[in-house]
Write a protein that binds this DNA or RNA. Structure first.
Lengths: 161, 161
DNA sequence: GCAGATGGTTAACCAGGTTGTCTATCTGGG
DNA sequence: CCCAGATAGACAACCTGGTTAACCATCTGC
């Protein structure tokens, strides 16, 4: 069997993902957001989409609340979110995105879109859209756990505004 | 337009990769290769392709020789490779794939191809081939890092343990 | 023949996840 | 009204894959 091996396809997909993410990460670093990784941006997006406590964020990311807390710790330490106590429930620490956090989301989104636009130039926008459509057909039929689209696609669609 | 955000595309790529890899990994486990993860298979492939020492493997996977050594340790412990001393260079421990390792490669390849074939049925084989061709155009072939970043590696890990 | 490159090992550490345990705080049924 | 149980969060120990750094043994080239 010649060049079209399934393993190669897998590597292509991973390579594509990495390529996008690496580019965005690097540009982000050059814009004053060094150290930010995709996982942080995704978490921030989930917070923007309504996950206002650590436990809640954990649920949305299908990750333990402790893991979510660690991510939040990073976001707080870097002034992307603030944690303020909830007057209605003393157990909770409500999460609020800071202006800097908003800025990160905006810039991040724009950078991802830039990469995508770049790709569109390389292979043609229509081809790119077809690629997306077909990938969506293949990926969406949800794999059991956290095939990503489930927990993120909705949040990703909407801007944080 | 939420429809075509770059971030979403990135997630689609990741989702596609994960989807393939999860499937293969699961099938592998059912065929007596439990605990094997993509990184192991890729490493084994690299060894098969000529990486016959730990340092060499590290270079091919763009990973430190120490990291490569850890992977090799797993492969050796599970009887996928053997390490034998090199008569021509006492520093080296040459890597040789065992029959079981060969079997893993064969089965793994077949499983990946199965998934790919499945995808071909879902969206049409021609469409799939086009998708591959375009992806290949986009992914820098000179930068084919196989290495999986830590934050992703954990996602690829088995939660069974 | 020796300086320097190279292979391998070990150790300390990091990042992000996990589970388990503990406290404080809500909440609902008797 | 009160206590059992659920929930939020914090902390600790541990796992997995990576990273550097340091070190020894062994080649290699001038």
């Amino acid at each position: 069997m010649p060049e079209s091996s399934g393993a190669e396809l897998a590597l292509l997909l991973l390579g594509g993902f990495r390529s996008m993410v690496d580019t965005v990460q690097q540009e982000l670093a050059e814009r004053g957001h060094g150290g930010v990784r995709p996982v942080h941006e995704f978490a921030l997006r989930a917070i923007g989409a309504g996950a206002d406590t650590a436990s809640d964020l954990g649920r949305r990311l299908t990750v333990s609340k402790q893991a979510a807390a660690k991510t939040i710790a990073f976001l707080e330490a870097n002034d992307y979110v603030r944690r303020e106590s909830d007057p209605d429930d003393a157990r909770r620490k409500r999460l609020r995105i800071t202006p800097r956090g908003d800025e990160l989301l905006t810039v991040g989104q724009a950078l991802f879109n830039d990469v995508r636009a770049q790709w569109g130039q390389q292979i043609g926008i229509e081809e790119l859209e077809m690629l997306e459509a077909q990938l969506a057909k293949l990926v969406d039929p949800g794999h059991p756990r956290l095939s990503i689209p489930g927990w993120l696609a909705s949040e990703l669609g909407e801007s944080v505004s």
